[in-house]
Simulated scan of single mutants.
Amino acid sequence: MNRDQAWSIVCEFIQSDALRRHSLAVEACVLAYAHKFAAEGHSVDPEIWSVTALLHDFDWEIHPQLPDHPIKGEAILKERGVSDEIRRAILSHADFTGVPRESLLEKTLFACDELAGFLTAISYVKPTRSILDVEVKSVRKKMKDKAFARAVNRDDIVNGAAGLKMDLDVHITFCIEAMQQHASELGLERVAP
């Protein structure tokens, strides 16, 4: 499966612009890591990483209850011919599936998912509503504010960075920069305050 086919599935199943943008934000972060890891000598297929990130929440609107998501979605992807590697990574991004995160792709998807959503939420409360104005210190401050973006699991953000053996601030910075490269596509460009 290539990126265009994955995006077609996303658009078929996801009607919400916000959820589509979340898929794109996770893709931006995961793909940036794919290029980083490839440059470090890891065997990485950026297309597979891109497809995995795009598809990780494709079934959220039709299966909004856990554990239906992503378990029931995985069966749909299997019918569509999506590879075992991609389906396994998608299953592993939810702790309750019992699929352990073993591969670098699996660990990266998990590390980027909640953080991308959190960075988007922080962008929305900036006067400019832009990822271009998000800084690590504001992310760390908002992580302590349990009332802010309540649905985002802070432990997943911390554990995701640890799973990649990365300092949390370095991971946050990396994902901010990845999303900044796609600010327009993510709807996170600066607007006049």
Results as ranks from 00 to 15, higher is better:
4 D>L: 15
174 F>R: 11
23 S>H: 08
38 A>K: 15
176 I>N: 09
69 H>R: 12
67 P>E: 12
47 E>G: 04
149 A>H: 11
52 T>C: 07
170 V>D: 06
177 E>V: 00
122 I>H: 06
174 F>A: 09
39 A>E: 05
107 K>N: 08
161 A>D: 03
102 E>C: 02
25 A>I: 02
164 L>Q: 06
143 M>I: 00
101 R>D: 01
79 E>R: 13
3 R>K: 14
162 A>M: 07
5 Q>N: 14
60 W>Q: 15
117 G>E: 09
119 L>W: 11
130 S>M: 02
23 S>A: 15
46 P>T: 02
155 D>V: 04
183 A>C: 06
57 D>K: 14
173 T>I: 01
122 I>P: 05
151 A>E: 10
126 K>V: 00
104 L>H: 13
79 E>W: 07
122 I>A: 15
10 V>P: 12
72 K>S: 04
98 G>N: 04
62 I>Y: 04
128 T>R: 14
104 L>I: 04
5 Q>S: 14
12 E>L: 09
51 V>K: 06
89 A>M: 11
135 E>V: 13
42 H>W: 14
192 A>F: 09
96 F>D: 04
81 G>L: 05
67 P>M: 13
10 V>W: 06
15 Q>H: 09
149 A>N: 08
70 P>V: 01
106 E>P: 01
163 G>V: 02
90 I>Q: 12
